[in-house]
Nucleic acid binder design. Structure first.
Lengths: 220, 220
DNA sequence: ACTCATGGGTCTACAGTGTAGACGTATACA
DNA sequence: TGTATACGTCTACACTGTAGACCCATGAGT
């Protein structure tokens, strides 16, 4: 019950935000907490458990609080429709990984077993059911959507979408032009800088259409 | 030019396959190659560069060889349609991460700058163009598709889709039933074991529909 | 034939990592 | 008073990546 664990997790979180995830060592964390490295093991089983605890702490900020109507959570406004709720959750996820880039790839490492993660899954389940998706398809589409959203966040955070300042020119330069017919076909669009926020929006719109399509197809 | 570097990368690859990625240390790798740890630095700048080299080596196996018609690459058969080529690439990607689970999350870490990665992107570009997607939308959809495919592979490899043997029951057990209306709604489908191969197929079908939708919508 | 560059390899050493194990101490409750 | 529990310390071990200096075989050039 002691808040000491949360205190430690928050300190680890602060270090990761300031100096990157690999700067989170037991020794550095201990020093920040003002304690000996080994003292941490009273509150955290492992270093792995520490990382799990960190993402858990982030996820808890993602969702509305247990209390009836926390207010500043995902569910804001009057009576949001299913697609509004989906969008809100997706944007909240991206917001977290923008604020804490190190967290993105951790979301892929460990399964979503914390209570908050389960709650997030439940929100998606409900939204899909409400959209009219047949119940047998709901779990699959939940996995598809969460995979894409987390994947987008991780890609953005790790720079997969923006490889260096001189992206497309550099990439094409590596190979003879003749070998890349696709690149030369859409070449002029590759020179524009990408607005990832707009792109994320468009992607979510496509996914929304996918969901209504699945609902319309119904049983099979 | 010396094949020594490839020899080293393959040894690293073998270690990762046998004992996991974290077992790939410079010392272990050196011992396997039959050499002193520091000798590796003649062929590899960094440990980071070593990892990059490893995924590079995997990617090169993903694609058809430079030679006119390698044969056993992605492009098999007579004249595959755009969706067949997309499917083949996706399946090849999943096959790689199934054979080398450690590689999955590395694909998210570093941007696709190796020649082989660029070639893979080009295949997707071409397929989308051929599907009739407006050229301005092609790069976005490529990112969407590759993000999902890599995300699916990474999720599968890291166990995000199968959290422990007693998945759904365990997950629901963590919270009071009343708090998870979505889970109880689709409850009976959660107790079935998931066939990830079939699910991947269904996901690709949904994505294919998304692509033809984007093509049909055309300019806007 | 003598020199020199180059590619490949060795040894030593350093600063940093996670963590097992034994030991201490202060508070809270019987 | 005794004892359990929570929290913290110290030491030590096996491991990590890698900087720096040194060595040696081969082949090219003069």
């Amino acid at each position: 019950m002691s808040g000491r664990r949360e205190e430690i997790l928050d300190a680890a979180l602060a270090i990761a935000d300031e100096r990157g995830l690999e700067a989170v060592s037991m020794r550095a964390l201990a020093e920040r907490v003002g304690v000996t490295p080994m003292a941490l093991y009273r509150h955290v089983k492992d270093k792995a458990a520490l990382l799990d605890g960190m993402v858990g702490r982030l996820l808890s900020a993602l969702l509305p609080t247990d209390g009836a109507d926390g207010g500043d959570g995902v569910l804001s406004g009057e009576e949001p429709t299913w697609d509004q709720r989906l969008d809100a959750l997706a944007h909240a996820c991206r917001a977290v990984t923008q604020r804490h880039p190190w967290a993105a790839h951790l979301l892929f490492s460990r399964p979503a077993v914390t209570p908050d993660a389960v709650r997030a899954v439940d929100i998606i389940y409900l939204a899909l059911v409400e959209a009219g998706v047949p119940e047998s398809e709901v779990p699959r589409l939940e996995r598809l959507i969460s995979t894409f959203v987390i994947g987008f966040a991780a890609s953005e955070a790790s720079g997969r979408f923006t490889p260096g300042a001189l992206d497309p020119r550099g990439r094409r330069g590596q190979l003879p032009a003749g070998e890349l017919p696709g690149h030369s076909r859409v070449g002029r669009w590759l020179d524009l800088p990408v607005d990832l926020t707009a792109e994320f929006e468009a992607d979510l719109a496509d996914i929304r259409r996918m969901v209504v399509g699945a609902a319309a197809r119904g049983g099979e």
